[in-house]
Amino acid sequence: MAMSGVLRPGHMQLKVLDLEESIDFYTNVVGLIQTGREGDRAYFKAWDERDHHSLVLRGAGEAGMDFFGFKVTDDATLAKLEADLNAYGVTTERIPAGDLLETGERVRFEIASGHQIELYSQKTAVGTPMGDTNPPPWCAAAEQGIAPIRMDHALLYGPDIEKVQALFVDVLGFYLVEHILLEDGETDLAIWLSCSTKAHDIAFVRNEEPGKLHHTAFLLESWEKVLRAADLMSMNQVSIDMGPTRHGVTRGTTIYAFDNSGNRFETFCGGYATYPDIPPITWTWDEVGPAVFYHDRQLNPAFLDVYT
């Protein structure tokens, strides 16, 4: 199998101010499908995702990220990566199967940026509304709300991102796709890392305060659907941060907006396909504007100052 090890982002658990209001937001505005509910948590998947959930909301009275999880190939891979992490000096914790609905054991660890990251190998494949045999290309849920096809990646804010990069590359098998340099020409402001052929599966921006979330990204299929998402945001009085526009980094088209708890989310489209042998793309500090927002060519103050 050409692709093994860490496969893809599998779940994000977000803290929300009011769980019931957030269930309504993610169902009717974002257009995800609710697949479960237990206690103070609600579970969602996108219409084209097979596994039970990719987004978990936890009613917490504040915003932010609890943890971000990656699915790995199988149980043996999970055990190997756990051992590799321990050998690298990373303390890991096994979260029991069933702690997240329809999910097997998870290996959780804290990275240098202060974020809780998880690996897991088992999650019930509940399938899509189209099924796996002679499926139609889409379904009714594909037109309800913004209706992304999957949870795609996350951008996290925290310190020591060079240590984060080393861990993801040396232990978890990711590779650097793009980076933005600070004025010294050596230190990274931001890094984009992939475990697949996607232009990024996770990204980090250097930030003094640890453990912060910049955004969770949801994938759309076309620029036209990004514009449709912007229409839906205005129809529903959603707070838009930036866009619709294009990123220089990844070339993806985008809107940054905030959910009803202030967690930024992205409706993202495109981004090129890449491979581990392709040299990373470098952006210099004086071109950070177009790197992040290619048309405005400048950072808005919220890009660096507003996170949860």
Binding site: G64, S239, F258, S261, G262, R264, V306
Partner: peptide
């Protein structure tokens, strides 16, 4: 200062 406009970021 304008932030998330949704009660979460504090700015």
């Amino acid at each position: 200062q304008v932030g998330c406009r949704s009660g979460g970021c504090g700015v």
